[in-house]
Simulated assay, not measured.
Amino acid sequence: MEKNALLAGGAVVVVVAAVATALLVPGVLADPADEGPVRPGPVDVADVSIAAGPATGETVTLAVETRIDHRGNPTNNVSVLVRAVDADSGLLTTTKRISVGNVSRDGEVTAGTNVTVPREGGYDVEVVLYRDAERVDERRKSVRGVSAIKPPYLQSTTSFTESEALPPVSFSITDAGEDRTTMNLMATLTNTGDNPAENLEVTFVLRQAESNIVASRTTVDAGAIQAGRTETVEASATVPNDYNYYIDAVLLRDGVVIDTARGAANLNPTRTISVNQTTEDVELRVEDFEDDDSGPRMTDQPEATHTESSAPGFGALAALVALVASALVARRWTK
């Protein structure tokens, strides 16, 4: 009887100790619903978009936005690596890493960053998605024509027109002299913006087509061009005759070139040039383009002279003697 009582007391002690341990030490008893460590939910790159940001004369900033798709359990330590690779050389230009952190909700999460690259050529933008330093997805997009992204000082709503009916550069003859011709130069500008364009100037440069010698240069104020309007700017230039010229028009705002256009003036009727090419070479008289106080001028050419001369000892008497000698020699041979 005592033995049974002793065993029963020991069992009670064991049960009490087990209950106390379970209460005092959490986690000793396993939860039957516990399936072990939680597996992180999948993440991948849903889309990548690139927009042009601020630009300078040398660089341009690309705004890269990455949309990350997430489903299932929370995912920790998500990050994005953005790389810009030169499309021509394949060299890495710049790298940027974005920390997204922990992603718990289902749907898309956006991660944005800016990368600055030289304002030339094109780039392949690579986006690599990481989870706990493990690469899980990547996406690539190409950007071309980065040089077309202009800094603020080059941006303008005003430019030369592009129309056959209203050419950007034209001219008319106002005075055709014996040696020199005076032309009225015209450049046509259009403001396609919503505000007036001001502080504009147009520089006309006339260059002899074959030699590239500048025969005339003049700058005129273009005034203010109202929104949506087309205006013509005029200037005068005097150049030597019998040459063909390219007429280059340069549009400037506060000393910055914002547009250019070209025309052609054929003052040599035997040869013609177009804006893109010439047909043949011509003889050039550099003195026609010499400068003085009044600009390029023509110089007088001395008339060519022809002088006849005879060698000494060959007059009429010498010719007669030679004729007689020839007759005597011929008579001798006939005998």
Rank of each mutant, 00 (worst) to 15 (best):
86 D>M: 07
173 I>E: 15
180 R>N: 02
34 D>K: 00
188 T>V: 14
63 A>R: 14
28 V>K: 08
113 T>V: 09
75 T>E: 02
153 Y>C: 10
211 S>C: 03
139 R>M: 01
143 V>M: 11
106 D>M: 06
112 G>D: 12
119 R>Q: 06
69 D>N: 03
328 L>G: 12
166 L>E: 11
218 T>H: 09
17 A>E: 08
54 P>E: 15
39 R>E: 10
290 E>S: 11
299 T>R: 11
220 V>R: 06
38 V>W: 00
157 T>F: 07
316 A>D: 14
18 A>I: 15
110 T>N: 04
178 E>H: 08
176 A>I: 01
142 S>H: 04
248 D>I: 01
128 V>N: 01
255 G>T: 09
51 A>R: 06
324 V>I: 15
248 D>P: 02
206 L>T: 01
312 P>M: 09
79 S>M: 07
166 L>D: 12
48 V>K: 00
117 V>E: 00
204 F>M: 11
178 E>Y: 08
256 V>M: 09
48 V>T: 10
66 T>K: 04
100 V>C: 08
158 T>R: 07
82 V>K: 10
170 S>Y: 03
72 G>N: 13
142 S>K: 07
76 N>K: 05
100 V>I: 05
75 T>C: 00
26 P>W: 02
174 T>N: 04
210 E>W: 09
183 M>N: 10
15 V>A: 14
71 R>N: 07
8 A>L: 15
90 G>S: 06
162 E>Q: 13
191 N>R: 12
1 M>L: 09
325 A>Y: 03
263 G>W: 07
116 T>E: 08
301 Q>M: 04
193 G>S: 07
96 K>I: 09
162 E>P: 00
209 A>P: 00
303 E>R: 02
186 M>Q: 13
282 V>Y: 03
304 A>Y: 05
326 S>R: 04
94 T>P: 03
78 V>I: 08
18 A>K: 10
17 A>K: 01
315 G>K: 11
5 A>L: 12
97 R>P: 06
117 V>Y: 02
285 R>C: 02
180 R>C: 00
26 P>V: 13
227 A>G: 04
253 R>A: 09
221 D>F: 04
269 P>S: 12
215 A>E: 06
159 S>T: 13
29 L>P: 01
283 E>F: 00
107 G>T: 07
253 R>C: 04
2 E>K: 15
52 A>K: 09
6 L>M: 14
294 S>R: 08
